[in-house]
Write a protein that binds this DNA or RNA. Structure first.
Lengths: 192, 192
DNA sequence: TCCATTCCTTAACATATGTTAATGCACAGG
DNA sequence: CCTGTGCATTAACATATGTTAAGGAATGGA
């Protein structure tokens, strides 16, 4: 069963006892999204954590009608509005499926409610945050120290095939440039 | 005694029991830095967490001889190489005092060693990471959606007086622009 | 099949920012 | 008191990137 994938994902990060898993399992549900459907809309309240099984999710913020892509999630990742959940405030970010997507989800409060009984879940969340923190810092350093051309090449390595699945203006926004500029970069890369 | 300030800082974030504090206290030490001295040098191993009592610390990364300022720490903050500590790898970042500074420090391993005995420390670290995560996300959104002029104005509000204590090229680097460009921005702001 | 929509590309132009260099101020050390 | 150093400012120029606009390929629906 697919639910087992959550166990594997969790247990790889930090060990989960059998009893803890048995108590957690009932929280799990499946969900799916069509192309361009939203997992989370900016300004709304959120309650769930997600594991992406199939598809692509983009996260972006919006200012004055302009969208700024922040990340892409591919299968195996947790496209979860962490900040909104832990601050218990409406999400500042939107999460949108760029292709038809399959996910598993569980209630954040339900998960958190297990902390007293099963400390391994608190350790798990701590470890996840630590890993995300490290990943984010490396990503930030990379984005600031490299130019758009290098970051585009790194993007292609980091998300194999993704380039062919989504419009290029989403990649441009992720890189912090216009689609026109990305097109120029691509043209230069081809001729060299 | 100054050590008490760590207790206050901790306890404000997440409650610390008396016994936990008694066991933690012996880990605390004072340290101080002269102007331009380093708390952490890129590429070195690190062992401590810090609380800044007095002074200013900048964090930056280095690529091809160019320095990119990432953050400034002012009193009350924890200028700690978190990523290096939790990944147990040499620091990719440098931490440098920009003015004479006073700090308290404690061993990260010693702190972590108290987790089994005093769960409140694990909860504390989790809460710190959560708060930092939220803060970082807001900061990222702000930096990406605003232009350099707005970010400069926000910098001045976020770090009152800091502008007069450190060279402007450090602020320019933090904003992702050249000192010349910052100078142009300042000139425009003055004339309007 | 045809048409409309979406999106990538290219060009021409405008603008913002980086680069190089010169000037002058302020401060610290001799 | 003088002088050197570090830093901010300004100008002139080069370059990169954004903007506007047009054209054309691919795709999906009628």
């Amino acid at each position: 069963m697919d639910y087992q994938k959550v166990f594997q994902a969790f247990n790889t990060i930090s060990p989960i006892s059998d009893q803890a898993w048995a108590d957690f399992r009932p929280l799990l549900e499946s969900c799916s999204l069509k192309r361009n459907e939203y997992l989370v809309r900016e300004g709304t309240n959120v309650n769930h954590c997600y594991l992406l099984l199939e598809g692509v999710i983009r996260v972006y913020y919006n200012k004055d009608g302009n969208e700024y892509n922040k990340t892409f999630f591919i299968p195996g990742m947790f496209p979860t509005p962490l900040t909104a959940l832990i601050s218990d405030q409406p999400s500042a970010l939107s999460f949108q499926a760029l292709v038809p997507s399959q996910l598993l989800r569980f209630s954040y409060k339900g998960f958190r409610g297990l902390f007293d009984q099963h400390r391994c879940f608190e350790s798990l969340l701590l470890t996840i945050l630590e890993q995300q923190w490290i990943k984010k810092e490396r990503h930030d350093i990379q984005m600031v120290t490299n130019d758009a051309t290098d970051n585009y090449l790194i993007f292609r390595e980091t998300y194999p095939d993704l380039e062919n699945m989504i419009p290029q203006y989403h990649i441009a926004s992720y890189l912090g440039i216009t689609p026109i500029q990305l097109s120029r970069i691509r043209a230069k890369l081809l001729q060299s």
